[in-house]
């Protein structure tokens, strides 16, 4: 896990469910084929209603047109991020689009597990809801050693909760890498 993750913020509200992260009609694509799996990046967050996409103004597309990489790589959201279905395609789609970390006060359990165990994105919990304190496009720096988020656009800093029990899994790069480190499965 990199100690510093920098990038531009993409801000969303509360209860962003997995259908908004990657609509069900797109779940048919291969996740392993390098070309085909780009569709997940392209359609990432395409289910968010336009007025709520990229707060506070809204109507900011996460990816432009046919592009599969986003210019935003840190998601800031409200409570209960990733609620809904168990689709691992959701954190995968965010990673494919270039997202490194999500910052929200709370997560739905399966999304959180998938993000950690698959090693896709780091699901950081914020002490307070930052979705109305940070604006889409703000330049952020995430310090994973200090558990702090710096907003250089606004000159503010915010506390994040330590990753706790899942820290070693994230640091290893996912469940399989962790299990190998621990000798739980053969290398």
């Amino acid at each position: 896990m990199d100690q510093k993750i920098t990038g531009r913020a993409y801000v969303l509200g509360a209860n962003i469910d997995t259908d908004q992260i990657i609509p069900a009609e797109h779940l048919v694509y291969s996740l392993s084929d390098p070309e085909e799996s780009r569709n997940y990046g392209r359609f990432a967050l395409s289910g968010v209603p336009p007025a709520l996409a990229g707060l506070p103004e809204g109507h900011i597309p996460f990816t432009e047109g046919d592009r599969w990489r986003s210019s935003f790589n840190i998601i800031v959201a409200g409570n209960n991020f990733g609620c809904g279905s168990s689709r691992e395609h959701a954190p995968f789609a965010l990673q494919k689009a270039g997202v490194r970390a999500v910052i929200a006060p709370s997560y739905a359990r399966i999304f959180y597990r998938n993000a950690v165990d698959g090693g896709f994105v780091i699901p950081y919990e914020s002490e307070e809801d930052l979705s109305d304190l940070i604006a889409t496009g703000d330049q952020l720096e995430l310090d994973t050693a200090a558990n702090r988020l710096y907003n250089s656009t606004q000159g503010k800093s915010h506390a994040l909760r330590p990753l706790g029990d899942v820290g070693p899994i994230i640091a290893a790069g996912g469940l399989f890498a962790y299990a190998r480190q621990q000798g739980m499965i053969a290398t």
């Binding site: 996740l31 809904g84 279905s85 168990s86 689709r87 691992e88 399966i110 597990r113 998938n114 165990d117 698959g118 996912g174 469940l175 399989f176």
Partner: peptide
């Protein structure tokens, strides 16, 4: 189960829950 509604089976007095593909 690899489906969030795997919790349905708990109606039969068992522990059931959903996970993703890696798990």
């Amino acid at each position: 189960g690899t489906d969030s509604h795997s919790c349905t089976s708990g109606a039969f007095g068992l522990f059931s829950t959903g996970v993703g593909n890696t798990d």
